[in-house]
Design a binder for these strands. Structure first.
Length: 971
RNA sequence: GCGCACGUGGCGGAACUGGCAGACGCGCCAGACUUAGGAUCUGGUGCCUUCGGGUGUGCGGGUUCGAGUCCCGCCGUGCGCACCA
């Protein structure tokens, strides 16, 4: 190859960039440039930590899974952004902690192991090596001493320890928190004491006292309280994966998020996390963190808190009640029937023997001879439908009369009780009071089944008369001998009736949640073993802390037993259950009962476990005595003096990570789970902060063009030719372009390795940051990267003579124009860097760089050095190289970021826009401090203005010094 | 269906509280240096134009001296939720 280097030997080419970049990466590593000192523990340098004038800052990326496919150009986007931010803040004098570890347990390595027989640890570690190399080449300023891996027994020891903390805790609703709120986690021993002393009543189903209960019975009682507990309950079972899944891992279509396998509800004994105990705090505390509103809304929706009342309806002719939850207790007088979910336990006892009872209308029977057969047929049909089918068959309401009646506690009316699958067992109580006049679903059911409709809220004029009225209005038809709601509005009526219900013992104000407890066990090999053993009574015991970690044993076969994906009669079988000599174990739990034989828990933890707390371990990765030293936690993420912007008045700061950048795909799963664990650890006194992520930024994705042929199959994007007018061909055949997520499935992989080779890491970084706002998704366009290379080439040339390789800056003072643009750029870039506006920062730096390029006599050193420092966060290698060649022996990583001189931000002369009737007709150079009067006079003297205002002036708007708008009288 | 975002040149995108629309970059056009250019440099580049100017931020209306920005109604795209009582 004939290269330009022959003519211009010191040009900034990809080859030179590569040499500079790897050299600086080596230097940074040798010097430990990005080591952030801790105040305490093994990485401590308290004096150094205290010496930072700007305090501390923790910058965090999503915990990556080391994929076997390697990185594509979309992956580094967030890493580069956090690196720029971290480097900028380092130059502002902060002790910045930025590092990256690996979320290394997970399904792909296990599936690969099943196929090849290679140990998942081997493939995982191979993948980590590849990923580390790719990331190192990017020049990220990470503290490599903190690169933890979840599969490291020294790490998962603490994952297991946290699990035991949670297992050994319960949520005491009446305990006062330091912030004054009610409810927090406490050690389970507290609860046991309360039971022993009789200070707390046992569950009402238990007639005996605590002392009378057996060991196993006590354990069962405690499981009702523990924050991590086992329960036999309907869970999501994916036979095709061979494992159960959490609700969050099941898609709307009722399939597994991973692998897209069908998911069935199955009753199984599984580990659960009592996240519901924290539902209120998880919802409320969103007000105290600085997150995108969109993500907060997603979490609030997932938690699904709604306030209302629970009301008990007596069953007619039986000593039984149906409890319902409603958000509209004000419409109680309009409840003309009730509906139970098909799975509701009360259904059987409601159905009378024999024929349809007196008062049954023809539409209610489903064509069956009696309620017994009708209900049985309906429940059977419902049970055969999957959740998906139930949801797909929308609109059309189905159901059948049970033959049973309840009594509306306010109106005293006998109302029929139906079974219908539009009522879900999983929400509220699985039963509703149906108010067809006030709820569209009930309205549809009532019209289909010939049921009475009693309006209780006066509809607005826009009401069509053929639907439910859900808006506000005055209450009507709502009075009995004791209470009247008539004439109230909805809000008043809710309050009045709730008080009445509570007074009469008919119900009470309650809060209901969509959030369910978190299913925490998986039937997989490649995950953290539970630190749990079971005794001969089946009682779960935590393994003593001293015996942690419970190491993951080697097994002959890594695969869980998988089944036909549609076979919902199958049962999970974890791989660890087949390792008999590991499962059976003799242990002394230290409870005074000596060594006994136990059976280990053979399920493993879900992938979320390791990623729920990794950011805490970053703070103190080598600590053997605690998951994180209290002083280190406080230093890096402790609560700050000031609450985040937008927090409610009087709110305290929760502390947490200073900046967390990641994709929106974690909005519910990871971010919710981590918040939950963090709050438990906070309640138990292990953490001073009570939120993990104080500031969260949701980044967009990089999408790349993908192409489909005439059959709709994806073709290799790199081999597609572009023709004129946005036409594309693959091997001569026309193909269609679309934009999508980069990856193997769309065959549009672009590797950062190619970019390093052709352009260098600095150019690549600059391009990714310059593409557009970080929060937006945007299309990748390889050919556009050359613009970023040109920028760096011009920067290089502004400092280095391309022929001689010598520094060519001049030691001359700045001329006025250069000084002005320099200081304006500093001012703008500081604002942009601080708010992650990297694309506009790059635009300003480009303007400055281009302006310096045009200086005929060479670039003054002062301007060159400031530009190099400002470019440093974005393109750190070339900046270090130029900084060093400019005569600075120290790395610029901790150099002070340029400060704008306000004197140059003021303008003495500005361009004033002269508008006539709002349209720009002229421009005027005027002093910046010109008075309104002077400006008006000057503008009115302009020939163009005089001409336009010959028939007179209606008004003149003067906004000195930038704008004057003259409105002439109409001719 | 409900909720939330967002619609600006050929493309990615700028535009602070309403005040010069299109910063910066890609592409494109012209020129320079070159045996050569898919390198580099310089200049130009919203559209239309009779070269005066006209017009222009999805569409239609409104408020205003003035609207990409505010309000109302449509259309489109994306995301979230989806019988949640």
């Amino acid at each position: 190859m004939s290269t330009p280097d022959e003519q211009t030997p010191h040009r900034y080419t990809a080859a030179l960039a590569g040499a500079i970049e790897t050299a600086w990466q080596d230097r940074w590593e040798e010097r430990g440039t990005f080591h952030a000192p801790n105040p305490a523990g093994s990485l401590a340098d308290p004096d150094a930590a205290a010496a930072y004038p700007g305090g501390s800052l923790l910058v965090l990326d999503m915990f990556p899974y080391p994929s076997g496919a390697g990185l594509h150009v979309g992956h580094p986007l967030g890493y580069i952004a956090t690196d720029v931010y971290a480097r900028y803040h380092r130059m502002l004098g902060k002790n910045v902690l930025h590092c990256l570890g690996y979320d290394a347990f997970g399904l792909p390595a296990e599936q690969y192991a099943v196929q090849t027989g290679a140990h998942p640890r081997t493939t995982t570690q191979d993948n980590i090596v590849i990923m580390k190399r790719q990331l190192r080449r990017l020049g990220l300023g990470h503290d490599d001493r903190r690169a933890i891996e979840t599969i490291d027994p020294d790490y998962y020891r603490w994952t297991q320890w946290i699990f035991l903390q949670i297992h050994n805790s319960w949520y005491d609703e009446s305990a006062v928190r330091p912030d004054g709120g009610l409810g927090r986690a406490r050690p389970i021993a507290h609860l046991v004491e309360q039971f022993e002393r009789g200070e707390r009543a046992l569950p009402s189903s238990e007639a005996r006292s605590w002392a009378e209960l057996s060991h196993a019975e006590r354990a069962r009682v405690l499981d009702e309280y523990r924050l991590a507990y086992t329960s036999q309950a309907p869970v999501n079972w994916a036979p095709g994966l061979g494992t159960v899944l959490s609700n969050e891992e099941v898609t709307n279509e009722g399939r597994s998020e991973r692998g897209n396998f069908p998911v069935f509800k199955k009753n199984l004994r599984q580990w659960m996390m009592r996240i519901t105990a924290y539902a209120d705090r998880l919802a409320d505390d969103l007000d105290r963190v600085d997150w995108p509103e969109k993500v907060k809304i997603m979490q609030r929706n997932w938690i699904g808190r709604s306030t209302g009342a629970s009301v008990r309806f007596p069953v007619a002719g039986q000593d039984a009640e149906i409890e319902v939850f409603t958000t509209r207790p004000d419409t109680l007088f309009g409840a003309t029937f009730m509906v139970l979910a098909p799975e509701h336990p009360l259904v059987d006892s409601l159905v009378p023997q024999g024929d349809w009872p007196e008062g049954t209308r023809p539409a209610w029977t489903g064509g069956e001879a009696g309620p017994g057969t009708a209900v049985a047929a309906y429940r059977l049909a419902a049970s055969r439908k999957s959740d998906v089918e139930r949801q797909v068959e929308t609109k059309v309401k189905t159901g059948v009369f049970t033959g049973g009646w309840a009594v509306n506690p306010l109106s005293g009316q006998r109302i029929p009780v139906f079974v219908a699958d539009y009522v879900l067992m999983g929400y509220g109580t699985g039963a509703i009071m149906a108010v067809p006049s006030g709820d569209q679903r009930d309205y549809e059911f009532a019209t289909a089944f010939d049921l009475d409709i009693v309006p209780t809220v006066e509809p607005g004029p826009e009401h069509d008369g053929a639907s439910a009225w859900t808006g506000d209005g005055l209450i009507i038809n709502s009075a009995n001998d004791e209470v009247s709601l008539n004439g109230l509005d909805v809000t008043q009526a809710k309050a009045r009736i709730t008080a009445y219900l509570e007074d009469r013992g008919l119900g009470e104000g309650t809060v209901s949640y969509k959030l369910r407890d978190w299913l925490f066990s998986r039937q997989r090999y490649w995950g953290e073993p539970f630190p749990i053993v079971f005794d001969e009574d089946g009682v779960a015991h935590g393994v003593p802390d001293a015996m942690l970690p419970v190491q993951l044993p080697d097994v002959p076969d890594y695969s869980p037993k998988t089944f036909d994906p549609d076979d919902n009669s199958s049962e999970p079988e974890p791989p660890l259950s087949r390792v008999q000599d590991w499962v059976e174990v003799d242990l002394d739990l230290g409870d005074g009962r000596g060594p006994r034989r136990f059976r280990r828990e053979t399920n493993t933890m879900p992938n979320w476990a390791g990623s729920c707390w990794y950011y805490l371990r970053y703070l103190d990765p080598l600590n053997d005595d605690a998951l994180v030293d209290a002083a280190n936690e406080r230093y890096w993420i402790g609560p700050r003096g000031e609450a985040v912007a937008g927090a409610p008045a009087g709110a305290s700061d929760p502390g947490g990570v200073g900046l967390y950048v990641g994709g929106v795909e974690h909005a519910v799963l990871h971010l919710l789970y981590a918040r939950f664990w963090h709050k438990v650890l906070h309640d138990l006194g292990h953490l001073s902060s009570d939120e993990p992520f104080r500031t969260y930024f949701s980044q967009g994705y990089i999408q790349a063009p993908a192409y489909t042929d005439s059959r709709g199959q994806y073709v290799e994007a790199s081999e597609v030719q572009e023709g004129p007018g946005q036409t594309f061909t693959f091997q001569g055949e026309p193909v269609q372009r679309e934009f999508g997520k980069i990856g193997k499935s769309l065959k549009n992989m672009v590797s950062p390795d190619e970019m390093y080779a052709v352009y260098g890491a600095d150019t690549f970084r600059l391009y990714e940051m310059g593409m557009g706002p970080l929060e937006q998704s945007k299309p990748w366009e390889t050919r556009a990267i050359v613009g970023s290379l040109r920028f760096l080439q011009r920067l290089w040339r502004n400092v280095i003579d391309e022929d001689s390789g010598q520094v060519r800056v001049i030691d001359a003072p700045l001329d006025a124009d250069t000084a002005r643009i320099l200081h304006r750029t500093i001012d703008a870039v500081r604002a942009d860097f601080g708010s992650l506006g990297f694309n506009t920062a790059i635009a300003r730096l480009t303007e400055l760089n281009n302006a310096l390029t045009k200086l005929a006599d060479g670039v003054p050193r002062e301007a060159a050095e400031a530009l190099v420092l400002m470019v440093a966060p974005l393109a750190p290698h070339i900046a270090e190289e130029l900084w060093s060649r400019l005569g600075h022996p120290q790395s610029l990583a901790h150099a002070a970021f340029p400060v704008a001189d306000p004197a140059y931000l003021r303008e003495d002369r500005v361009t004033c826009v002269v508008q006539i009737k709002g349209k720009v007709r002229d421009r005027l150079e005027v002093p910046a401090d010109i008075t309104e009067e002077a400006l008006r006079a000057q503008v009115l003297g302009l020939p163009k203005v005089a001409e336009a205002t010959r028939s007179g002036i209606r008004t003149v708007i003067v906004r000195a010094p930038r704008l004057v708008n003259v409105v002439p009288l109409e001719a």
